[in-house]
Design a protein around this nucleic acid. Structure first.
Lengths: 170, 170
DNA sequence: AGGATATGTCAGCCTTGTTGACATTCCAAG
DNA sequence: CTTGGAATGTCAACAAGGCTGACATATCCT
């Protein structure tokens, strides 16, 4: 319905990749790929009492050991009540521990316990394994492009988070 | 923690892109990019009584006009109860209509109404706009790689869905 | 006629998000 | 040294959107 026509506004080189149809394909590719992306960890989680929210928390606590609750809130983009529900179960099950900040005693610095690291490893092994296959099948050139487009798709603020321009605070 | 070392099992060319660290970056890129990917339609939806589930339904009914309920179930990967809750509101609000199949009268073939097409356009305009910016910023080469990696990440069955090897049934 | 298929629906449950209100502890500036 | 604001935790209530199980109806196909 009035799609498909490349908006051939600029001159020379092929802009066919900016066609509405190509963009739609890209959108659906994101949708289906994200399903695959989460499928393996989800399978592991569903046997335990955890869900994707726990995965995300564990992942980022692993990545940024010693991060504060506030920092985690900013990264995950959920409310503190929502995060707290997750963190509480992780504390109770001794996967994560919170250490009172030395400089600022109001802050809680989060760390995985040995048990927590074990779960993290199981989850990320599964997820990395799929990622590795995809990367290998696609080749370094494609991976480069993959990363470039993904970064361009992020909100600027999140892109900064991603690029690690946010300090942990101790 | 015993990461970071490239598994330099094979010989010559650089396999640095298969490093655990690089894979972790890819995983987080997916996470943050998906947030951006859904952000714009979500903003539109939150003013109405709809959510992401409605968006998905409307998208795929648009893409495959006349598809059946069963087909949609397969594509979306949810239960019929879950889909039905969504479809019912779309029928009630006259965004979607169901036509009894001509060959097989058990089937319901789904179509967007004019009103439905309007919503679809609003949503996909927003989503495509971000996609287009990302594509343009990254360039055709990168887009090619982006698509290649995403396809490699899908479950094989979903990849077939994506590549459109599934007929609609009328 | 009878089994299989496509769809719809009721009821109930879970996870994970939300808002609002409030308490505690601690830092930092006046 | 007091006081406002920051970082955190918690209670309660609610909503969206998944899920299972059970059942009903219409239709097709053998």
């Amino acid at each position: 319905m009035a799609e498909n026509m490349p908006t051939n506004s600029s001159g020379g080189e092929s802009l066919l990749y900016l066609t509405d149809e190509q963009l739609r394909k890209g959108i659906e590719a994101m949708f289906f790929a994200y399903r695959g992306f989460t499928a393996d960890p989800d399978r592991i989680l569903e046997n335990m009492d955890y869900g994707r929210a726990h995965h995300r928390a564990v992942h980022f606590i692993h990545r940024s050991a010693g991060t504060t609750v506030g920092n985690l809130l900013a990264i995950l983009g959920v409310t503190k009540q929502s995060l707290n529900r997750v963190l509480r179960t992780l504390f109770d099950d001794e996967l994560v521990e919170a250490r009172v900040g030395k400089k600022d005693k109001r802050e809680r610095h989060l760390h995985l316990t040995e048990k927590g690291r074990a779960l993290e490893r199981a989850l990320s092994d599964a997820q990395r394994s799929r990622m590795r296959s995809a990367y290998r099948a696609a080749g370094p050139q494609a991976v480069q492009g993959f990363r470039t487009v993904l970064e361009a798709m992020m909100d600027p603020e999140l892109r900064r988070q991603f690029q690690g321009l946010v300090e942990t605070g101790q």
